[in-house]
Amino acid sequence: MLDLTPEELTAVRLSLKVALWATVVSLPFGILVAWALARGRFWGRSVLNGLVHLPLILPPVVTGYILLLLLGRRGPIGQILADTFGIVLAFRWTGAVVACAVMGFPLLVRAIRLSIEAVDPRLEEAAGTLGAHRLWVFATVTLPLALPGVIAGAILGFAKAMGEFGATITFVSNIPGETQTLPSAIYTLTQVPGGDAGAMRLTAISVAISLAALLASEWLARVVERRIRRA
């Protein structure tokens, strides 16, 4: 059954690469934003909150189109990126990374934010009286205690990235070997006669990866939790 064609194998590999990068790139930002939302008292907090959650409510195609408008070669940001840094995102696998990161961001932030909010602020106060600056308090107390949630958020983001379709196909299209991720490949296979077998194979792989990610996250979170709370 798992006799993948070279094209299918490429799509699986690409999807893993894109999802991994999307997670790695968005995690630091996600942690910062989650911290700001959980503990920050600043003007524009609700605006930031809305902005972060936008990809969750908007149709993915719309998000993808907005990305294309902003980050496309002629887009206001895309042009600067291309002219100054030589970075082109549209119709490249790096663009798929951006699309997946943006789509997974709300899930990632939400999980991390909840776990940061669950950290007892009185412990942070105590760290402050011991001489730790707010950033140090975050690095040495808040983040370690919120680690299970950070892991859960990262895996959620990864799983979301593995399955992202609408925004990706709109922003970077469906180019085999460059931007044809697993969902795009499944979609393509269902559009051609005789593609059913391939679609089934990829579907099975997709389910397996998602399940494995979920189990891994549960297990990791448990291990970390035990290390934090017990001897």
Partner: peptide
Amino acid sequence: HRRRVGYVFQEGRLFP
């Protein structure tokens, strides 16, 4: 963090 007061809280507040 710049006052350098040692604070012993009622509930200890040790880092778990």
